[in-house]
Design a protein around this nucleic acid. Structure first.
Lengths: 236, 236
DNA sequence: GCAAAAGTGTTCCCGCTACACCCATGC
DNA sequence: GCATGGGTGTAGCGGGAACACTTTTGC
């Protein structure tokens, strides 16, 4: 941290510092059930405050990059991945988020495809966790993740988000699994498929997914906007 | 502005500065039709850049106040009013929002009651404008206002926002006028009243509004949350 | 053939829209 | 009385939930 050794008068004098953090979601098979669940990467803090605790990836904003570029860079630097979806979440600016020094964090949230996510970097200080089984995180990051989860669930209901957690081709059942993982409840397969098929952005490829145990399902493709800074006017 | 005289190297060295701005909406009778319309207060810039142009009220964030407190203070200082509703809108951080110096603005939006708004301060450098008839504003403030309007319309559809533009007591027709002003289209009075009466936060006071030209309408009261930083988990 | 997932059809219910109609007041 | 907005009733449409049913594969 920049002013971690600041005394009180320095704290008063220095302007609040500005940081960018990112909540990164990806789908991974659950260790127990094998069904897809939400995971996110965290970094271990190697200095005070909260040394040793896990925290959201983030860092200061440099002069030449936009807020979104900074978030995208966070993502690349900690996981080696590029986001399939990226959107601003909220600016957190409470007075005592960080001891010793006032920090305002502009937080983004991202979705990445599972094919990539499987080969994401992991190391001593970068590890993936199940979104519903995080321990105590540094700063107010537990609250931030909760809020990001709430937003994800909300956006999902509106549509057009789920595909960014999947690969290029997917079956309707896979989309349903995404919904079930995120919303944490079962959905009627029959009604769900009808809803999806009524949305024009889902295109039937004519291909089938072979190798399953049962009747091979059709493969679809998402033809909506690619997904950075997206959705009907959610970002200016 | 803090570093307005900065040269290139200073600009590179200095961290991006942080500002808070606020889009303040209130209902006022239209000059022509007399029907309620959306207005907002702007301040005239008295120095470069954009000297002489109108801009959103705002300023730097001081150390001892939260983001929301800073927005609330903006509101009080420019209009003398306190907000009935206040919520974060977005953090704008494009590289060239301001010439000469990089500024990241965290923007809030607010609603104020019309009874108060009628006696709001106005002066040579603070003036209210119809939201749909602004000229060219300083910085990217036209885009910010557009985005705030979009959010207002969205929130309205979800409910629980409109009452913060009205006084403590109101008729159902007044609520409908708010919706019509904000959404800019006519609504069926019969169906609209039924929808409202089905929401439990609207309480019949038993009183009637006297003095009209026709049958006196009932007066209602909003019993939902008072309205700062509100709505079902829209803010952490 | 059997199990299980893919995919289709059908019914019911609820909320919204449109619009006809009655009520109470000022003039 | 008449005009006008306040307020109620009701029929129809459409989308979602529930669930029965058929199809296609692996074993």
């Amino acid at each position: 941290m920049y002013y971690s050794s600041a005394n009180v008068s320095e704290r008063q004098a220095a302007p609040p510092s500005l940081a960018i953090s990112t909540v990164i979601f990806a789908l991974r098979p659950s260790a127990t059930s094998g069904r897809p669940t939400l995971w996110l990467p965290l970094v271990r803090r190697i200095r005070e405050p909260f040394k040793g605790l896990w925290a959201l990836p983030g860092g200061p904003l440099s002069h030449h990059e936009s807020l979104q570029d900074a978030a995208s860079r966070n993502l690349r630097e900690t996981t080696g991945l590029s986001p399939s979806y990226l959107e601003q979440l909220y600016a957190f600016g409470g007075l005592h988020r960080s001891p010793a020094q006032r920090v305002v964090s502009i937080v983004y949230w991202a979705l990445v495809q599972p094919t990539e996510a499987a080969l994401a970097d992991e190391s001593e200080n970068v590890r993936w966790f199940r979104a519903d089984r995080l321990g105590d995180l540094a700063f107010d990051h537990n609250a931030i993740v909760d809020y990001a989860l709430w937003r994800l669930r909300n956006k999902l209901a509106y549509g057009s988000i789920a595909y960014h957690l999947l690969g290029e081709y997917f079956t309707l059942a896979q989309v349903r699994e995404v919904y079930e993982a995120v919303l944490d409840r079962q959905l009627d397969p029959a009604n769900f498929r009808r809803q999806l098929k009524s949305t024009p952005e889902i295109e039937d490829t004519g291909e089938y997914l072979q190798g399953g145990k049962h009747r091979p399902p059709r493969l679809y493709r998402y033809t909506g906007r690619p997904g950075l800074d997206p959705d009907n006017r959610s970002t200016p």
